[in-house]
Every structure is written in structure tokens, then in C-alpha cells.
């Protein structure tokens, strides 16, 4: 019984702390592109919404499934290149989308193999205000895969 109460209590605390943070910052549509099992790198995309009065910077994404760097694809003089970035800004009352052709997470050194289509990968986002947010990213072929389901 005591154990049960403890579980309920810890569950409640986690819900409360989550909603406190969620009020200010939410992460949506996190997805990882399904790639061949021989891949060395896969991209991570998501949308961050900041309803707070302070701008927030994403400093890192961590996962038990691999190492992740924050990258940005830059187009210059018709040439594309990817470059590591130290932070990704989310303006106050704004949102930043990490999407193909722009900001993205580059995941590598997989501990449990290349994420396969249909998998869910836990990601922990660390922000400059000290907050950490853990979410699940869906592994799929394209960003609009879920949208198709809504249409039909």
C-alpha cells in the first residue's frame, strides 16, 4: 500500500512538473526519418513552441539510442552544406521548426541499431533555462505520413 501511494505520488509530481513546463514550452511532431539499416546517420525533426515571455535556447538533444548533434543545412550560392550549431533559438511567444532543409538533429553512433520504421525513440531536450524535456520521436518515411491518415 505504501509502495502504491509512493507510485501515485511520484506520478502526480511528474504530471505537475510536466504541465508547469508544458505551459511555457511544448515540443510537437518529433520524428526521425526511417533510413536503411546500414546508415551511419539519421535526421531528427521537431517543432518547439514557446509561450513564455523569455526566449529559450535548445542546447542539446540526448538519447540512450545514439549520439545527437544539432545541425543546420545552409544554402549558399546554390550549394548546400550542413554545419553543427551550438544552440537553436525559440523566440518568446514563438516557435522554431526543425525540418528538412533547415535545423535538424543528426543522430549517429547507434546503441541499438538504426531506428526502424514504426519505432519510437526517446529524446531528451536540454534548454538554456535548465529545463529538460523528454519526448518520443516516431520513426517514419516522411513527415506527412500521419497527415495522410487524417485526410482519408
Amino acid at each position: 500500500m505504501k509502495k502504491f501511494l509512493l507510485i501515485v505520488l511520484s506520478l502526480l509530481t511528474s504530471i505537475v512538473s510536466y504541465s508547469l513546463l508544458a505551459e511555457q514550452l511544448t515540443v510537437e511532431n518529433a520524428w526521425i526519418r526511417a533510413m536503411p539499416p546500414t546508415s551511419r546517420v539519421v535526421p531528427i525533426y521537431l517543432t518547439m513552441k514557446n509561450t513564455g515571455d523569455q526566449p529559450i535556447k535548445l542546447l542539446a538533444i540526448n538519447s540512450p539510442n545514439g549520439r545527437i548533434e544539432l545541425h543546420q543545412t545552409i544554402m549558399k550560392n546554390g550549394l548546400m552544406r550542413m554545419t553543427p550549431v551550438e544552440k537553436i533559438m525559440v523566440d518568446s511567444h514563438g516557435q522554431t521548426t526543425m525540418a528538412p532543409g533547415g535545423y535538424h538533429g543528426m543522430m549517429m553512433n547507434f546503441t541499438q541499431g538504426v531506428p526502424a520504421k514504426g519505432d519510437s525513440v526517446p529524446l531528451t531536450l536540454t534548454f538554456n533555462n535548465g529545463e529538460k524535456l523528454t519526448i518520443m520521436a516516431a520513426v517514419k518515411m516522411n513527415s506527412d505520413e500521419t497527415m495522410h491518415h487524417h485526410h482519408h
Partner: peptide, 17 residues
């Protein structure tokens, strides 16, 4: 190149679609 995380797979997926 295949060790390209963002643009190359995005382009290939786009063309495949």
C-alpha cells in the same frame, strides 16, 4: 552522399514520392 543526414535522404524521399 549516404552519410548526409538531412538533404540527401529528404531529396531521395521527395523524388521517390
Amino acid at each position: 552522399y549516404t552519410n548526409c543526414a538531412d538533404i540527401c535522404p529528404t531529396t531521395m524521399a521527395h523524388v521517390a514520392q
